[in-house]
Design a protein around this nucleic acid. Structure first.
Length: 919
RNA sequence: GCGGACAUGGCGUAAUUGGUAGCCGCGCUAGACUUAGGAUCUAGUGCCGUAAGGCGUGGGGGUUCGAGUCCCUUUGUCCGCACCA
């Protein structure tokens, strides 16, 4: 009986569906385990072989945990709002909802083919009102909250209003955009507009002016992580800086907790490091400098207050608010000119000539508060408006950027730390003795920094302060295909809807472009206003909104009373294993943690961190094939001979190439222009060249899982993807090699059917050797799954079959089938019921237990070839003490010769063998 | 520039975590069965050498009885951040 994978896989996928095999419910009698994949954005191209890598790994883990007795939640869904569907709609007029639904259907079919154990009754789709209602709900909660630094917690905004009425801003320690100061009376005297404005300064979801990444081609703003080197992540369009009023989320309020939380979760060090860098915490001092001739002070941030005696000038960002006041009439023209110049330079250009020094003198001066010296104030775009206070004290002797600036403008350079050669470059190191610094002289840098913190505070010049690189998340997009904000404008004041008015559904429109006035497409919607006629917000939420709390929704996907019920949340708690790509390190994985912590503060969820363990699967790249056309002809020369001709490489569809050998007929049929192609072969074959590239249609290197499954079956596909290499590693897809995995399954099948061609299982007792092989495999595979080392687990199965020969004993095959099930669910399910005769699904079986008794080595050998002098091989029974082994070694003739009368210093013994004898 | 990861046969990789380097698979070679095989099975396959033997984990150095593994140095590849004060 042949291994008919097509029939078997179809049969079981059907049965699983009918029986609802993978449906899970809360079950307090069993421990829970939550395994989640980062849900896909359903693109029009469908899945290629790279996408399922993580899904296969998580499915293996889910099934394994289930077989270990856990109640496993393993859901899947779709991140369905997003730019590509909208871009497609602009081009074709097709409503994004329509194309998205089509794509989801296609994805669902493809996923189904791979035999995943998803509870499909929990499937979610972020673009459906039943789902995004809760995204809007969370937004309302954020709008209605501020962050209290003392309590380290989000609190209702009403508390803050009460505090303002009592004491104004007196004694306030809360997260805010700008430090404001007013009394209770002033607060009470403000009108509604003013109060609303002030509150935006404190809300966790708030509106405010900010420099944004504006993408003209897409007609929308983008978050920092959506911009790559000045181009949009999606589409690769240029992005410029622009000041705009935008909805934002006060992620910065959580910076410290986001940082601290990293120590409590089981993520890779490299990923944690990326997040730490992204948050970019730095300790320093806020210092106020007097401005010569002005009443105001210049606030700066520095991590090196110890170098303040070396500050020979100040630099402010072009966008700094004091620019106008500082500029003296004689410098006005030059300053205006410079500002004009920097405005024109896009972010990209600024990055491109990061090394070019540019700047202009304002004419204004600051007074160094420690030595009273007057120092000039410059404007330069190397100081960023968005970081710190947008102003710095420049210490050219100990900061390379300040050094370059000082050299360029001929400014004085005063060393204040010993070391380095200032004629060549600045000395940036954080070590050495202080000089030229009055009371700091002789101190070590680290001591001096601490001393200065104290001095600055005691002299009332400023405070010790922590600064973050992390910015508040810009939360609005001038686009159609996203969640509408549950906000309307009453007399121009942003007003939230009530919770019972949710969801605010996305209205239908038929033209998806921005309006002529440059408003977002939603402005085209008819009656986009409340029943009273107040207009709704026309921008929509960004891509990360819907994916920030989706893991909570899976716990209780049909609840219409809340995002997740307390009961479901208390049972499922948080994701135990999260699988996905590293590309979400600074986007989704930050926002989700923020979102979860916010809900935690409000008491809606019980866990502070959403993803306990996270594994980043590598990316699967494409392996492109090339043919070599002899220039100006329709003749193609095989790879090995191409040097003899003048050729051009041409991408060829990898699906008509097998093991780098071109299928000539298929090639001629591929495209009309190749119908008459001629070939120069080597050894009768046309060998193609190859290269590793991104998997994409234009490279003709997309391998479709459907085709692989059609040819080899899902079980083979699953095993082969795992066998390809370590899960975390990126690697090119190469179909060649899949035969090995397929051969393994055929051999496995044959063990059950080898005699007569029908299933035939022997009830004979297994030999010790067979048991040893079985238990060795159980041990290895179990450990490998726990370590996410699926490639070595697959190897272990192959070794197991090599060792078993044609053993068809139940005592071996029954546990082996269970062990293999997570990897190859269809074939094992079939064999479990048909060949082994079990009545219940193998998915409800138990993982075989590993018994160390069967692993006992039966002999101790010491084949040693040491320095080419000592050679012997003896067998000793295992389990004897080391002293006995040593005695046996000393009694050996060859060893005696080698030792030549000397006593060995040490005999190095590891289980099963002697490694070395040291004289 | 800063931070991180990696480097092993023709290829993907493995190595009990400091203990016989190259497991498993692909590919290749030879053979068996077969009308045929892109099926199956057997044997071989790191490199040089007929062999004995020698050499081998990017290069150089070190620690150790012993290093793919640890340390220093160097080269190369990939990734993250990038004027972050």
């Amino acid at each position: 009986m042949e291994y008919n994978f097509r029939e078997i896989e179809k049969k079981w996928q059907q049965l699983w569906k009918e029986r609802g095999t993978y449906k899970v419910e809360i079950d307090p009698s069993r421990p829970k385990f939550y395994v989640l994949d980062m849900f896909p954005y359903p693109s029009g191209a469908g899945l290629h072989v790279g996408h399922p890598l993580g899904y296969i790994a998580s499915d293996i883990y889910s099934r394994y945990k289930r077989l270990c007795g856990f109640n496993v939640l393993h859901p899947m869904g779709y991140d369905a709002f997003g730019l590509p569907a909208e871009q497609y709609a602009i081009q074709t007029g097709q409503h994004p909802a329509v194309t998205t639904a089509q794509n989801i259907k296609r994805y669902g079919e493809q996923l189904q083919l791979m035999g995943f154990s998803y509870d499909t009754s929990r499937e979610i789709n972020t673009s459906q009102p039943e789902y995004y209602r809760w995204t809007q709900w969370a937004f309302l909660k954020m709008f209605d909250s501020y962050y209290c630094n003392d309590k380290q917690q989000a609190r209702p905004i009403s508390e803050l209003i009460a505090a303002f009425e009592q004491n104004g801003t007196q004694g306030l320690n809360v997260a805010c955009t700008n430090e404001l100061s007013f009394t209770a009376d002033q607060w009470k005297a403000m009108d509604e507009h003013k109060k609303a404005d002030i509150l935006h300064n404190y809300r966790i979801a708030f509106q405010g002016d900010t420099m944004v990444n504006w993408c003209e081609a897409l007609g929308t703003v983008l978050a920092n992580d959506e911009v790559i080197n000045g181009f949009s992540e999606r589409g690769g369009h240029p992005v410029v800086q622009k000041k705009m009023k935008q909805w934002q989320l006060r992620v910065t309020a959580y910076a410290d907790r986001l940082l601290a939380g990293l120590d409590t979760i089981d993520w890779s060090d490299s990923l944690k490091e990326i997040q730490r860098n992204w948050i970019g915490r730095s300790e320093g001092a806020q210092v106020f400098f007097d401005i010569d001739g002005l009443d105001e002070k210049m606030e700066i941030f520095t991590t090196r207050p110890d170098t303040i005696f070396g500050a020979t000038f100040m630099v402010i960002a072009p966008e700094h608010e004091l620019v106008d006041k500082l500029t003296t009439p004689e410098n006005a023209a030059a300053v205006a000119d410079y500002l004009e110049q920097t405005k024109k330079r896009s972010e990209r250009e600024r990055i491109a000539d990061a090394k070019r020094v540019s700047g202009v003198f304002t004419g204004g001066h600051c007074i160094n508060p420690f030595n009273g010296r007057k120092i000039p104030i410059f404007i330069s775009d190397y100081v960023l408006a968005g970081y710190g206070t947008g102003a710095i004290m420049a210490v050219p002797a100990h900061d390379s950027r300040d050094y370059a600036f000082a050299k360029h403008f001929g400014l004085p350079i005063i060393p204040v730390v010993e070391g380095g050669d200032l004629s060549v470059e600045s000395y940036d190191a954080k070590e050495g003795k202080l000089i030229n610094s009055e009371f700091l002289n002789g101190l070590d840098v680290k001591e001096a920094i601490q001393k200065m913190f104290a001095e600055i505070e005691s002299r009332g010049l400023g405070k010790k302060r922590v600064n973050y690189r992390l910015r508040d998340a810009i939360f609005s997009r001038q686009r159609y295909w996203g969640e509408p904000f549950p906000i309307y404008y009453k007399d121009g004041i942003a007003t939230p809807l009530r919770e019972d008015q949710l969801p605010l559904e996305l209205p239908p429109i038929d033209d998806f472009r921005p309006t002529e006035k440059g408003e977002p497409p939603l402005a085209r919607a008819k009656n986009w206003c409340t029943p009273e006629g107040y207009p709704y917000e026309t921008s929509t939420m960004p891509g990360f909104a819907g994916s920030s709390a989706y893991y909570l929704r899976y716990m209780d996907p049909h609840n219409d009373k809340g995002l997740v019920s307390r009961k479901a949340d208390e049972y499922w708690r948080s994701v135990d294993l999260y699988l996905g790509g590293i590309e979400h390190a600074t986007g989704h994985l930050i926002y989700s943690r923020f979102w979860n912590k916010f809900l935690y503060d409000l008491g809606y969820v019980v866990e502070d961190e959403p993803f306990r363990k996270l594994v980043n699967q590598g990316m699967i790249q494409g392996r492109s094939n090339f043919v070599y056309r002899i220039s100006g002809t329709n003749k193609f020369v095989s790879f090995g001979l191409k040097e003899q001709y003048d050729t051009q490489p041409i991408h060829v569809d990898v699906n008509i190439v097998n093991n780098d050998i071109l299928d000539l007929d298929a090639f001629r049929a591929w495209r009309p222009e190749f119908a008459t192609a001629e070939f120069i072969l080597e050894d009768g074959k046309y060998v193609c060249g190859w290269a590793v590239e991104k998997m994409s249609k234009s490279m003709f290197n997309v391998v479709n899982p459907d085709q692989i499954i059609e040819k080899y079956g899902a079980d083979t596909f699953r095993m082969y993807e795992m066998f390809l290499g370590p899960l975390e590693q990126s690697k090119p897809w190469d179909t060649k090699g899949i035969d090995g995995a397929h051969k393994f399954l055929k051999r496995f099948w044959r063990l059950f059917t080898q005699r007569e061609g029908n299933f035939m299982i022997s009830d004979e007792k297994a030999t010790p050797a067979e048991l040893k092989t079985l238990h060795k495999t159980i041990k290895k595979v179990t450990e490998d799954i726990a370590n996410f080392s699926f490639n070595t687990a697959v190897s272990a199965f192959m070794i197991c079959l090599n060792e078993l020969g044609d053993c068809n004993k139940r005592e071996i095959l029954d546990p082996l089938t269970r062990l293999l099930h997570p990897f190859a669910p269809h074939i094992t399910e079939e064999l479990w019921t048909s060949a082994l005769g079990h009545e219940t699904s193998i998915f409800d079986a138990k993982m075989p237990a590993f018994d160390p008794d069967h692993l006992v080595e039966n002999s101790f050998e010491y084949p040693v070839s040491f320095n080419g002098k000592l050679r012997f091989k003896k067998e000793l029974p295992l389990g004897i003490p080391n002293s006995e082994i040593e005695k046996a070694v000393l009694a050996d003739d060859n060893a005696a010769k080698y030792l030549d009368g000397k006593t060995p210093k040490k005999i190095i013994i590891v289980p099963g063998k002697i490694i070395n004898i040291v004289i």
